[in-house]
Design a protein around this nucleic acid. Structure first.
Lengths: 212, 212
DNA sequence: AGGAGCTGTTTGACCGGTCAGTTAGACTTG
DNA sequence: CAAGTCTAACTGACCGGTCAAACAGCTCCT
């Protein structure tokens, strides 16, 4: 089904149509929403014909899935790299959030598509798995930072898993609010900083404070 | 355009077709997503004909808008009532979160539709206003609780507005994760409690801790 | 009382357009 | 030619919106 994977004689440069299509689909999906974009539009945006889209991705759902997987992989990688720098736990968290809130345009594209993914994941089985994978990858990264911070005495908390979930909730929750702002472009820096403050406030607390 | 509003002689009980349609639409939209439901299906679910849907709500978009407004109003009211009880700031927050996480089925319906709303709000102007209204209503409620908690010395923080935003991010963020769980029904209580813990951890902190 | 006529409600058939998916065949390249 | 790649035209289903006509309740006239 997939013509080739790696060992190709002439790894012709600009010739992986699949990626061309996914990139075009990503842009269009995030702009208008998955269900408002036809295969024709995607093909046209990639300078190809619609037939080819179905040739490579048997169905539209497959293309959507592939596009989301592509976006999710890229984002997970960006988060990972952002976290790799910075030494102290606090610094790591700040670097991580800076890395995630990298730019208004990029963030908006990704999170709008991610919203679609969440909606699909809650209703279609095919998407549930992808969403679960993304969830565990990201949460594992967060948990690692938190565990390290706890070990060094910078953060408090006994359950890094739950801490990761909460940290993620804070980040996603701020994005969700930000997305709905009419002037999202201008407000991007404010949300980024508020997100940092909330995350650090949550993480750096007195060890015994959480109530019953 | 609207036939009547209040002063009707025979306020026939089960006869407001508009509400019948909105209720049917709410159920179906939340189950399958707005764009996967046709006007025919909604009409059939309400035991009416499709023509009537367009008779009352000129367009599908209007029906979607009306349905979302209805759901959002109801939810805001539920939150308000949940907060009305309980005296201490901590108790108020707990009561509020208990009130919000009222039941798996209900929560799932609402948040799934809310996800659609967020997606629409980010792309269509008509929905932006509704989303902004809901945002300010809910955040005002949260800010009030926080301000009261700060005044009584139970919570720390100088900016109740930002605190409200963060509190909301925590709640929405946990919902977003919960929605994507395959066995959401069973996990509902866990997420509810984790949400409480995170909220209280964020709110009850030592006054000077937030970094930079 | 009993139409006649009006107004708001309800239906079902219908139209135009859109879109995912199919197919037949053309174009490359080895 | 044979296999892989690509296109354009087509199909069949679906769906939002329109419309003409049927229908119900009401008032007013005779």
């Amino acid at each position: 089904m997939v013509p080739r994977a790696a060992g190709e004689v002439r790894a012709n440069v600009a010739s992986d149509r699949r990626v061309d299509l996914i990139r075009a689909a990503y842009r269009l999906f995030s702009e208008k929403g998955v269900h408002r974009i036809s295969l024709d539009e995607i093909a046209a945006a990639a300078g190809l014909s619609k037939g080819l889209v179905l040739y490579y991705f048997k169905t539209k759902e497959n293309l959507v899935l592939a596009t989301m997987r592509w976006a999710v992989d890229g984002t997970a990688e960006r988060v990972r790299q952002a976290m790799a720098m910075a030494g102290t736990p606090n610094g790591k968290v700040v670097a991580m959030i800076d890395g995630i809130w990298s730019g208004a345009e990029t963030n908006r594209r990704f999170y709008l598509l991610y919203l679609d993914l969440a909606g699909h994941a809650a209703r279609l089985k095919h998407f549930t798995e992808l969403s679960a994978t993304f969830h565990s990858v990201v949460n594992a990264l967060y948990a690692e930072v938190i565990a390290q911070g706890v070990a060094e005495g910078a953060f408090a908390g006994d359950d890094p898993e739950e801490g990761a979930s909460a940290l993620r909730a804070i980040i996603d929750g701020f994005f969700l609010q930000w997305l709905q702002e009419a002037d999202w472009e201008r407000l991007h820096p404010w949300y980024r900083e508020a997100c940092k403050r909330a995350a650090l406030t949550y993480l750096t607390r007195v060890p015994g404070s959480p109530a019953p």
